[in-house]
Design a protein around this nucleic acid. Structure first.
Lengths: 225, 225
DNA sequence: AGTAGAAAAATCATACATGATCTATTCCGC
DNA sequence: GCGGAATAGATCATGTATGATTTTTCTACT
């Protein structure tokens, strides 16, 4: 246990989930019931239930009689998610083109301005802004399922990204693609916007996977359970 | 409670899930913990945990202090799932084209022969065969995430379908599309196969939604909670 | 290294306290 | 008497606690 936390706000589920997504609980970390119960100042029952819910959401893996672990995230996992996002996000974007009004696009531009102003200096802030940028596009979709699926994937990817810095070339690509996307949206070019988003997602995935590969070569990997 | 079940095989989670997917627990049915504990001959703790896991998988909905219900399934829900499948399944199919060998296609044809032989006479059997048909295509995909997502959606859709009969025109379309799909796969025509699958999924979704609409007009709907 | 035994941990079963919600009856003003 | 508000009791979800049992994990010894 890293820190004996005594936050008392929010459900146990939310707190554990938060700790996983934010990285305070590392990938593959063992999640002992008694320990978590202490950490979140509850009894074991809520912890068990939270873990089961997280298991259902695939944030946690469980083996019979061997308890729970934070879902270990490897390159294949990221690739899988990205492949789905490459399909999903362009489709969500296309629909956004048909409903976006001037105010929506102005808001996108405002966020983009903040992203450029921050210019990757504050990594956490960039993550938040970038998420908000895409969320503006996806969150209003009528397909709640698709939108929530995106969000779930997003959170996982963000949890990974926060461990790595963004390469210079990737920074450039991100800014460029965001700008191009805004232009396409403004021009009501659904196909163009979708194509850029696909490229954006793919690039993001490739970047993360490369970083993971690089990190693995430096940090000696724990034997995987 | 309909039946006092005393099956003792499998985890409580599996049994509840099974009862939901198979329809023994109706959509929107209230899931009382004490009742389920009796039904599955366990204590309340495993039931509570199973419900949380199912909640994470979205088979069950929960409201604070008001317990759990079997996820009510409406047209919007089906539409959402289908929209995702329209993206997912063609992509999975394309990949299948690149790895399928003669034996794979022969197996598809064998299943298709059984489907045609059964000719929708036994509804449950048709559901099984149809699932197996598509499973042959998707299950070997390297993207476990996508494959599992398909499977989850499939189970839900099957649970709905089993309540309705298949219209004559839909029967024809299913058989035709399966045959065309096999032909495209054999011809290594990835794009063609993908297009047919997209059409197949969309048609299936449309059919289900129509059936649901029709049923609603006959069966007076319970006030939705 | 391999292993026996100890400690830790998961899992399940109860029992109970508390508080929210639902139901149905009572009660009041009209 | 009638409709609706107030309320008392039943029902249920949720959290806590504790013990039994089994499996896994750790530790110390050969």
């Amino acid at each position: 246990m890293i820190e004996s936390d005594n936050r008392s706000t929010g459900s146990v589920y939310e707190m554990i989930r938060d700790d996983i997504v934010s990285g305070r609980l590392e990938p593959n970390a063992r999640l002992k019931i008694a320990e978590l119960a202490l950490r979140y100042r509850t009894s074991t029952n809520p912890v068990r239930e939270a873990l089961q819910q997280l298991r259902g959401e695939d944030f946690v893996q469980m083996e019979p009689n061997r308890g729970a672990r934070v879902r270990p995230i490897d390159e294949a996992f990221v690739r899988d998610i990205i492949e789905i996002e490459v399909l999903l996000e362009p489709a969500l974007t296309k629909w956004f083109v048909s409903i976006a009004n001037e105010a929506d696009i102005a808001e996108l531009e405002a966020v983009q301005a903040q992203i450029e102003e921050n210019d990757f200096a504050d990594r956490v802030r960039h993550g938040e802004l970038d998420t908000r940028f895409h969320q503006l596009i996806y969150d209003r979709h009528y397909n709640r399922h698709a939108s929530e699926l995106w969000w779930k994937h997003r959170e996982v990817l963000r949890a990974i990204s926060r461990r790595f810095a963004t390469s210079l070339s990737r920074r450039q690509a991100v800014l460029r693609e965001h700008r191009t996307l805004i232009a396409a949206l403004r021009a009501q070019d659904a196909e163009g916007a979708a194509a850029i988003v696909a490229q954006h997602v793919e690039g993001s995935g490739r970047h993360i996977i490369e970083q993971m590969g690089a990190a693995k070569r430096i940090i000696p990997r724990r034997s995987p359970a």
